[in-house]
Nucleic acid binder design. Sequence first.
DNA 1: GATCCGACAAGCA
DNA 2: TGCTTGTCGGATC
Length: 899
Amino acid sequence: MNPTEIYDALSKIAEVSFDAEEFPFSFAEATDASQAAISKLRNGSTNKSDLPGGVLFGKRFHYAPAPAGKSDTTLEQLRASKKTKSAKPAILLATDGEMIAAEHTASGETLHCAFKDLGDQLGFFLPAAGKERYRAVEENPVDVKATGKLAKLYDALIRANPDWGTDTRRHEMNQLMMRLIFCMFAEDVGIFPEQQFSRLIFTYAGDKGEEAHKAIIASFRAMNLPRHQRTGLPAWTGELDYVNGGLFAGAIDAPKFDTIAFRYLREACGLDWREINPDIFGSMIQSVADPKQRSELGMHYTSVPNIMKVIGPLFLDDLDAEIHKGWDRPRALQQTLGRMSHIRVFDPACGSGNFLVVSYRELRARETRIMQRLEELDGRNAMGTSEMFSRIKIDHFYGIEITDFAAETAKLALFIAEYQANASFKAVFGRCPAALPLRDAARIYTGNALRLDWDAVCPPPSKDEEVFIAGNPPFLGGRQLDEQQKISMAKVFENHIKNHKALDLVSAWYIKAANYILNRKAAAALVSTNSIAQGATASTLWPHILNDSLEIGFSHQTFKWKNNAHANAAVMCVIIGIRNKIFRGKHIFNGDHQSIANNINAYLIDGPNIFVGSERKSIFNLPEMLFGNMPRDGGFLILTADEGSKLISEGFGKYVRKYMGAEEVVKGLNRYVLWIEDSEVEHARLSPFIARRLDAVSTSRRESPAKSTQEFADQPHRFVQIQGTAHNHAILVPSVTSERRPYLPVEWVGADVISSNLNQVLYDAPEWCIALIASRLHLVWIGTVCGRLESRFRYSNTLGWNTFPVPKFTDEQLEALSNSARRILKCRYSHYPKTIADLYDPDKMPDDLRAVHKENDDLLESMYIGRPFRNDTERLETLFKLYAAKIKTLETANKKKKA
DNA sequence: GATCCGACAAGCA
DNA sequence: TGCTTGTCGGATC
C-alpha cells in the first residue's frame, strides 16, 4: 500500500462508528497487514498484549481500548506494559472512540487528536505500516490526497482524450493542470472570492460536464486580460479578476471532460487547498502531470529534510546564531533584518523549485519571528514596525531549469509560498498587501545551466548582498553522457581539467558554482552522488576547486537517497558546501552526528588536502598487481559447473578452465570458461557445443557499440583482454565487495584458475602480500582512497595497491608476514566448507579467525610504528603522512632527473 | 593497452 | 518488496 491508500483506509475507519474490539484489526488492515497476519492476531495466537482488550501486533503497534475520556491514562498503561518493552512496537495507541492518544516509541513523540481525524494523522501512523516516518513537513495529508485526486483527474482526461496524452499535447495538458491547481488554491485561500472559480465552472459546464472545457477556456482567457481588454468572452467571465504573473499567458485550450473526469474535477475542487505544501507539492504535481516521467521525477525531487541539510549549514544556521546573539538588542535585530532583505538564493538546477520554496519559507519565518521580537522589545511603534512588511521578495529567488514545465511549476510554487507566508504574517500582525494581480515573480530561467552565464542569470552580489547557491543537480556518470551533455561538459571544463570526460555531470555544477562564488559574498552547497568525493573523481576534480581561496565549509558524508516517492532512485549521496576561506568552524555531518573539522578534504574527512591519484606501479615497490581478464563475450565463453563437467567427459577438458570473479572468490561458486589457444581453435570446434558458443561470441561482439570489442569478433575463442595468467599461483582480490566485512576478501589459487576482470590479481607473488591485503590497515586505505559502488568497497590496483604506503620491510619481517598469511589461510581452510562470505560475516566470524587476523594486524602495524594503532583515525593519519612524504620524495627526484 | 564507473542491477528472503 | 551485495562491459585514459 502506498501512503494515499493508507490514508483512504484510515479515513474510512474514522468514518464508521467505533467498535473497541474490531478497531485494532481494521487498523492493522488499514496499515497494510496481510489477511493471514490479521487472522492470527484475531484468534490470539500472535497477540502478545498484556492489557485487557489489548492487541499487540509484532513490531507494528500495541493497542488498548480506553474507558470514555481516559485515552491518556490508557496510553500510560501501554507505555508501562512489560510486553511493550519486550516487543518494541513502533506505535502505541489508545482510544475511547472519541479521542486518540498515541506515541511513536522510537522518538517518544506523542499525538492527541480526535478519532475522526485518524486519516489526517497518516504521517504519525506510517510506522505501524512498517514504513519509515515522514518528517513533520512531509506529513501533510492534504498533499497526499490532492495528488491522488489530480492523478485520477489526469488519467481520466487522457482516457477520454487520447490525443492529449501524446507528446504534442502533453505540454498543454500540463499547463491546464497547473492553471486548474492555481484556481482551486486561489478560491480556497481568498485570492479569488470564495469558491468563485468552481461555482462558475460548474454553473456553465452542463450537467455532465459536456461544456466544461468551454467554461474553463473562457475563464482562463479572462484571467489573462485586464477587464477593459476583454472582448468576445461570455459575460459571466466579467466576474473573474485579472491574475497576471504569466500564469495564463500563451495558448489556452482544454480537453473535453467525460462524466468520470468531470466527477474527479468536482472532487479536486472540493478539496481544501489551503494547507498545500508548495515545497513538495511542486514535485508531486509534476509527477501527476507527466506520466512518462512519473517515476523518474518522483525519484529525483529533493525531500525537505534533505533540502534542510543543504540550506541549514549553508546560511540558515549562521542566521539563527546571529538572531540568537542579538535577541535582546533591537538594533542588532534590525541589522539582521536588513541582511536578510539582501539575501538571494540561486538554484541552478531548480526543477519545480523545492529548494527555493523551502528557502523562502524559512527566511520568511525567521523574519516574522524577529519582527515579533522587535515589537515585544520596543512596543508597537517604537521601531516603526507597524508599517513594516516583509522585505524578502520572491524575486530574490533565482533558478535555472531545463524543462519549461518544471520552471512554470517553480514559479507557481513560489506564488503559493508567498501567499501562504503573507497569510501567516497577517495572522500575527493583522496586515497584508492585496494578493492580485500577482506582482514580482521568482526569476526562473528556462535553459541549460551548463551553457548559461550564471552572472547573467543571477547578477553578482553588490556590497550589501549575499548570494547562496543551493540545489540538487542531475548526476550522470561521465561515460554515460549523451552528445549534448558531453558538449556542455566540455564547455564548462574548457582550459580547466584534463580527464574531465570521466567526471560525473554534476561536477560541472561544482565548477560553475566555484567560479561564481570566488571572491564574492557568496557560498554554494549541492547534493550529489557520493562518487564525487571518491576514487579517481576526487583526485581529478577537487584540486581545481580547493585552491588558495576556496574551501569546503561543511559536508554531509554518504547517506542513502530517500524521498517519499514510491520507487526511490538507487544512489548514495553527499552534500558539499564550498565557500571562500574564512576563519569559522567547518562541520562534518554523518547521519545524526556532527563534528568540527580542521579541514575537510576531497574525501570529506578531517585531514589535509591530499589527493591520491592513480599510479601505474607501486610507489612503495610492492609486486605488480594486474587487472583481471575481460571476456566481453556476451556470456558465451562462460560455462556453468554442469556445462564444464560435460565438456570434460566428452574429451574437451583441455579447453575448460576454472573461472573466478568476485563472487567465485567470496561465495565459493564454481564456474568454468572456454580457454582456447589460437592453434587449438580447429580442434576445439569439433565440439558442436563449443562451435555454437564461439559463433555466439562472434555475433555478440559484432553487435557491440565499442569498436575495441568488434575488432575481436573474428577471434571468438579468446578474451578481448588477456591481462595476465599465472605460472604457479595467483592471489585474487575481488574488485567489488560488501562493506560490512571486517577485512577485505583475498584468495590464493592455483595456476589453473582464470581470473575475470572482477578481480585484481597478483600473479606468482609472495604470500606476505596476503598479510597486507587482509589487514585492517589496508581496508582503511582502500575504503578511503578508492572509489565505491554505492557504499561497497571497490578495489583498484592503481588507486589503492599502487599507492598503499608500507615501511621498508626487512627479510625477517617479510618472513613473519608470510607466516601470518599462512596462518590466516590455514584457519580458513579448517572451517571448510565455509566460504569467505560465511567466515567474514561480521555477526558470525569464528573466534579463531578473528584471533589470527588480530595477530596479523598487530604484527604488521608494529612494523609501522612499533605498536598496534589505536584506531582507524590513527591508521589513516599515518598512511596519509607516509604517502605525502613519498610523493614529495618522488617529485624531488623527478625534478633532479629533469635538471 | 588498461581502467573506473554505474540517480545500478540482480538475486534472495 | 525491501535488503544485501557484486555482473558486465563501454567510454575514456
